[in-house]
Design a protein around this nucleic acid. Sequence first.
DNA 1: GAGTGGTCTAGACCACCAA
DNA 2: TGGTGGTCTAGACCACTCA
Lengths: 235, 235
Amino acid sequence: MSPLYQQIKKRITDSLVAGLWQPGQCIPSETELANLYKVSQGTVRKSVDELVIENILIRRQGKGTFVASHNEENSQLRFLRLTSSENKKEKLDSRLLTFEKEKANSSLAKLLGISSATTIVSIKRVLTFNQKPLILDFIKVPAASFRGLTPEKIIEKNGAMYRMYENDFGIQMLHAKEKITAIAANAETADLLRIKKNSPILSVERISFTYENKPIEWRLGLCLTEHHHYASELD
Amino acid sequence: MSPLYQQIKKRITDSLVAGLWQPGQCIPSETELANLYKVSQGTVRKSVDELVIENILIRRQGKGTFVASHNEENSQLRFLRLTSSENKKEKLDSRLLTFEKEKANSSLAKLLGISSATTIVSIKRVLTFNQKPLILDFIKVPAASFRGLTPEKIIEKNGAMYRMYENDFGIQMLHAKEKITAIAANAETADLLRIKKNSPILSVERISFTYENKPIEWRLGLCLTEHHHYASELD
DNA sequence: GAGTGGTCTAGACCACCAA
DNA sequence: TGGTGGTCTAGACCACTCA
């Protein structure tokens, strides 16, 4: 038997998965949850503590506890670790290159926990900072989870993918794992990023997860690091 | 006035900085600390909770609470994010190339929070995994904090720097920030890593911090990522 | 002033570990 | 069996927000 607060945490998570409380909205107060689940307020607090640490909930003293959302101003670039080495303010834009449907190969299927030959939406785009190309992105998601995803929609949102996933498809990105390597740009990449062929670039492969650690997006970012760097904190 | 548990946390940290409780040893029990500081056990618990999250303390149910140590088997490679892409078991070795004393330039001095022209120990080494060169490391630390640091000592420890800092100099590495870019190997680097000149390699610049966020080591790692990758978790 | 999260207490009991 | 951390409770008061 798991501790009470873990069971409460699970029940809160279940309500979030079910969409009972929407991103950006506040959930019931701690005392209300305590009454609802027939436990003390301290136990609810411990459950909420963990969800706050996991960036699933956000506490605002005097106001309430809110469901995390990619629509917040701060959390817009929550998963973007690439920052300017000169700390300049930068304007991010997205240019969609291709939008295709295809069958998942076996390695992608394995990574996303789906059966191979499942239909996948495959997106290629370039992110620019201050008009200059910075990242060449390849994004693949299962088509079934994103019915109605169109090139127009992506263009309309100017590449704010996670915000779109949340608002239009009810899918919350909560966590991601990245594998980083240095590679030489091939001809096509070099052309799109406007650099010389074989220039060193950063390859960032990402798997994103939604509730209950379910993988839902694969992404490969090829990044210029002449004036930017990938920031990482270790402890 | 900060919350009580923050004050207690500070007092615990002070005792750690003073060396009252040594790495690997256990600190007084929660009830003892509660009596010592004249607060309830729950308040001590909250203080210790935070120190555990920061990897400064480690709880072991039934045994006690211990000061984190780089001597533990698990925490040996705590700050090494580079892992084999094939999940092979690997043997890590270090080959010391140069060991010199020099004056800090202004940018390094700024990063380490020391005055420029302070004497610095500058180390160059190659890390090999399974006999093959993998990382070319440049390490710089203030000489004053590491009196008695010699090439022999480094060789004796086979490059386990943080273990050595802890055991021989009483300095605990607790936290680090890294900046990652892709660069082209210059002639010297290519030679030492046994790759072709201009091959893409990962540049990892690290600042390490000890208690109270004091920067104490600068490091630049140039890494081969043919068969390895830098792993990063985002949330 | 009413409602929210944030802190603090005192005390009970459980789970784990070592002697 | 005794000591440790781990969980849970009930209740008090503080700090912040907003009407």
